[in-house]
Design a protein around this nucleic acid. Structure first.
Length: 648
RNA sequence: GCCGACGUAGCUCAGUGGUAGAGCAGCUGAUUCGUAAUCAGCAGGUCAGCGGUUCAAGUCCGCUCGUCGGCUCCA
C-alpha cells in the first residue's frame, strides 16, 4: 500500500495490449483508466493487478499487469455483489435503524450475504421491503468512496454508531493491515473492498432467502440473522441466473427420483433411501461397472461384517474421533458399533496371515453398507444420507509403491468420470486438520507423497489447507455437472495410522518386519450420492447402459399385439430391458409417457411392420431411426451398451 | 442439533372457524388409433400424528414426526 513518502517513486503497469505505463507509486487504477479514456473510466467497475482484484480507488504500490474490469468481464460480478451487500445493509439500516450490522460475504456462487443483529427472523415480507428499499438506493446512484483510516479512529467511529459487532470485527484485523472504510451516501462500512464506482453499476438485485446463523460460525455464539441475495450488472443477467435456478429445480433428483419410480423415503427410516426396482437396476449397474473396471486394476472384492465390537473402534481410533457420527448397539452385555467405514475390517483381513513384500500391493474392494449418524438438519435427498455404500477400496502397499498406486487410481477415476461425460474435473489435495492422529513428520511425508504422485503425472491440483481426514491427507476429485455445478466424488486418502494401530506388518526383502502404508480410495464416492448427482447431471436421461427401461414396444393397436409380443420377446431374449406397452391408449399418448419416463428407444409396430417383419424405432432424443429389422436394432443397441456409450 | 418455513387424494394445488374441492394419474366402458396427452363414467381423504381452545377446527394454540431453505458437517 502506498504512503505519501513513497509517492514520488515510479511503478510500471503493463496493460492488456502489452503497452507499459510508468506512473507514480500511489496512482489508482481509476486514474489510469481516465488517462486511457473517459468512456473506459466511466464503464470500469474494478481492476485486477496480476490477476488479483483491486478497488479502482486503491493506490497501487507495485508494478504489475493492470487490467480494467467492466461489466462485460466475468469478474465484474465480484465487485457488483460485494457492493450490493453494502446496499442491502444500508437498506436494512434505513428500515430498522437500531439493527447492528455484522459483515457481508460472497460465496463461490452468484450469491452474497450479510449478517445482522436483529431481534427476530426476517420474513419474506421483510425481504420484499428491503429489496424495494435497495432499488431506491440504487436509483440515488451514490458513488462508493474508499477511505483509509487509523484503527483508533475506526473503533471510535463504529462505537459512536453503536455498531458493536463492527468494533469486535475490527479487533480481528491483524496489526499492520491498512484499515479501510467504504461509504456510499450515508452508509459507512468497515470493508477492504473492492467495490464498484457508483450504485447504478449494480444493474439488478434480488433477495433470495433469510436464515439465522451463529456469529462467526460458532454454535456457542449468539445468533445473527442472515439475508442472501444476488446482484448482476443487468436485468438480463439476473434473468439468466433465475433461468439457471429453474433448470436446477427441474433436475432436482428429489423430485425426479420418485417421479421416475427410482427410490423413495419413508418416515420410519429418516435419511435412508428405499430403492425401487428401477433404482436398484441403476444401483447394481453402477456397481457392476466399478467391479469390472477395478478387477482389471488388480482389486479383489471382500465382504465384511456390519456390526463389530466397540473394541475394534477403539483400536482404529474411530471411537475417539468419529463417535458422534456412529450408531451403537448392545447385545449380550457387549457393546457394538455399526460400521461407518470399511477400513478397520480390511486391516483385520490383512492381519490374518503373514504377508510378504512380494504380496504387495494388496487391494481390497468392498461395497459394504455403511451407517453414519448425520444430524437431522444436514441430511438431504440422496446426496447426504445415513446409510449408504461406497465404491470403497483399501490398498496396502510399500512406501515406494504409493506413487504407482495413486497414479493407477487417478487414471481409473478419470476413466470413470469420462464414461459419464464428466469432463471438467478439479483435483484438490487436502492437508492436515487440527484434530488428527500422528506426528508432524509423518504428515509432512504423506502430504508430499500425494502431491508428488500427481505432479509426476502432470496433473494440476489445488491445495485445501486443513481439510484432510484425521488419519491422513487426501486427494479429492470435484466434477462439474451438465449445468456447471460442482460435486465432490472421488477421494484418495493416505493413511499411516491404521496399519500402525492394527500392528500390520509384512516381511521385507531383508527378512525384517515392515509396516505397510494404507491408501483409502473411492471413485464414485457413495453409490447413493452418485445416483443423485447422475440424475441431476442427466436430468433423468440415463445413458442406455444404465436406463432402467431401455426400450418400450408400442403396438399401434390391439390388432398388432401378437407381433408386438413377439418383438418384445426377442428384445428381452437379446438381453435388453424392454417393456411392452399395449394399453388401450393412442400411440401419441404412450409415446409421450415413454418420453416423460426418459425411455431411450420406442419401438413402434403396426400393419407395415407386422407385414414386413420390421420395427420402427424412435429415440427419446427425438426423431425416428426409421424402419429396421429387430436384429439390426438389437445389434445397434447392444453395441452401444457394451461400450457404455452415451449418445443415442 | 439450532433458526425459519411448510405438511389437504398417488402428483400439482384450491379451500381464513360453519357439509373437504379441482386438474393430472388410477379404475371401468366406449374408441382400434402411426410418433409428446381420445371421450365418458366411477372411485379415491383419520386434511402428517397426538393433545388443547371453541357450540363448531383442514383453518386458532401446544407438542411430536417428516420435508424444505440455511448454520455446521460431508461420501
Amino acid at each position: 500500500m502506498a504512503s505519501p513518502t513513497t509517492a514520488t517513486e515510479t511503478i510500471e503497469l503493463t496493460l492488456p495490449d502489452g503497452s507499459v505505463r510508468a506512473v507514480a507509486r500511489g496512482t489508482t487504477p481509476l486514474e489510469v483508466a481516465r488517462s486511457i479514456g473517459r468512456g473506459l473510466a466511466r464503464a470500469a467497475v474494478g481492476a485486477a493487478v496480476d490477476g488479483e482484484l483491486v478497488d479502482l480507488r486503491q493506490p497501487l504500490d507495485r508494478s504489475g499487469a493492470l487490467r480494467l474490469i467492466t461489466s462485460r468481464d466475468p469478474e465484474a460480478g465480484i465487485f457488483i455483489r460485494h457492493s450490493a451487500e453494502h446496499v442491502m445493509a444500508d437498506a436494512v439500516k434505513r428500515l430498522w435503524p437500531e439493527v447492528e450490522i455484522d459483515v457481508g460475504r460472497q460465496d463461490h456462487s452468484e450469491k452474497f450475504q450479510y449478517d445482522f443483529r436483529f431481534p427476530r427472523a426476517f420474513t419474506p415480507e421483510d425481504l420484499e421491503r428491503i429489496e424495494a428499499k435497495m432499488k431506491e438506493i440504487l436509483a440515488e446512484d451514490a458513488p462508493f468512496e474508499r477511505i483509509e483510516i487509523s484503527r483508533q479512529e475506526a473503533a471510535k467511529l463504529f462505537a459512536e454508531m453503536g455498531e458493536r459487532l463492527k468494533v469486535e470485527r475490527l479487533a480481528d484485523i491483524p496489526e499492520g493491515e491498512t484499515i479501510t472504510l467504504f461509504r456510499h451516501g450515508r452508509f459507512t462500512d468497515l470493508c477492504r473492498g473492492p467495490h464498484v464506482q457508483r450504485a447504478s453499476q449494480i444493474g439488478a438485485v434480488k433477495l433470495l432467502e433469510a436464515s439465522s446463523v451463529y456469529w462467526k460460525g460458532d454454535e456457542s455464539n449468539e445468533r445473527l440473522q442472515r439475508i442472501y441475495g444476488t446482484a448482476f450488472a443487468s436485468a438480463k443477467d439476473l434473468r439468466a441466473y433465475e433461468e439457471q435456478l429453474a433448470q436446477a429445480r427441474a433436475r432436482d433428483h428429489r423430485r425426479l427420483g420418485p417421479e421416475l419410480d427410482l427410490f423413495s423415503f419413508q418416515p420410519e427410516a429418516p435419511a435412508t433411501p428405499f430403492f425401487h426396482p428401477k433404482g436398484a437396476l441403476i444401483y447394481n449397474g453402477l456397481m457392476s461397472f466399478v467391479r469390472q473396471l477395478q478387477t482389471g486394476y488388480g482389486y479383489q472384492e471382500v465382504i465384511t461384517p456390519q456390526i463389530l465390537d466397540l473394541e475394534l473402534w477403539h483400536t482404529s481410533g474411530h471411537y475417539e474421533n468419529y463417535r458422534d457420527n456412529m450408531f451403537f448397539t448392545e447385545v449380550d452385555d457387549r457393546r457394538f458399533a455399526v460400521k461407518p467405514m470399511n477400513c478397520p475390517t480390511h486391516c483385520q483381513i490383512f492381519g490374518t496371515r503373514l504377508r510378504s513384500y512380494r504380496d504387495l500391493p494388496i487391494r481390497y474392494a468392498d461395497f459394504g453398507r455403511l451407517h453414519r449418524y448425520e444430524r437431522s438438519g444436514v441430511v438431504t435427498g440422496l446426496t447426504r444420507v445415513r446409510s449408504f455404500c461406497q465404491d470403497d477400496a483399501h490398498v496396502f502397499c510399500r512406501e515406494e509403491q504409493i506413487g504407482d498406486e495413486v497414479r493407477a487410481m487417478t487414471e481409473m477415476i478419470l476413466r470413470i468420470y469420462d464414461t459419464f461425460d464428466f469432463h471438467d474435473v478439479e483435483i484438490e489435495v487436502s492437508t492436515r486438520p487440527e484434530k488428527r492422529l500422528g506426528s508432524d513428520e509423518v504428515w509432512d511425508h504423506a502430504e508430499r507423497a500425494l502431491m508428488e504422485a500427481l505432479e509426476r503425472q502432470g496433473i494440476a491440483y489445488q491445495i485445501n489447507e486443513g481439510d484432510g481426514a484425521f488419519y491422513g491427507p487426501k486427494i479429492d476429485f470435484q466434477v462439474a455437472d451438465a449445468i456447471g455445478r460442482s460435486w465432490q466424488l472421488g477421494t484418495i486418502q493416505l493413511d499411516y495410522q491404521l496399519p500402525q494401530r492394527f500392528a500390520l506388518t509384512y516381511v521385507g526383502e531383508d527378512g525384517a518386519e515392515h509396516r505397510p502404508v494404507m491408501i483409502h480410495r473411492a471413485m464414485l464416492g457413495s453409490i447413493e450420492r452418485f445416483i443423485g448427482i447422475l440424475i441431476e447431471h442427466t436430468a433423468g436421461r440415463f445413458p442406455l447402459w444404465l436406463a432402467p427401461v431401455q426400450a418400450v414396444v408400442l403396438p399401434i393397436s390391439e390388432k398388432f399385439l401378437d407381433y408386438g409380443e413377439d418383438v418384445h420377446r426377442r428384445l428381452v431374449d437379446a438381453g435388453l430391458r424392454a417393456e411392452l406397452d399395449a394399453r388401450n391408449e393412442k400411440l401419441g399418448y404412450r409415446i409421450r409417457e415413454a418420453q416423460v419416463q426418459q425411455v431411450p428407444y420406442m419401438v413402434v409396430v403396426g400393419a407395415r411392420e407386422a407385414e414386413a417383419g420390421m420395427i420402427n424405432v424412435r429415440r427419446r432424443s427425438g426423431g425416428e431411426l426409421g424402419s429396421m429389422t429387430p436384429e439390426a436394432f438389437i445389434d445397434h443397441a447392444t453395441e452401444l451398451i457394451r461400450q457404455r456409450r452415451n449418445e443415442l
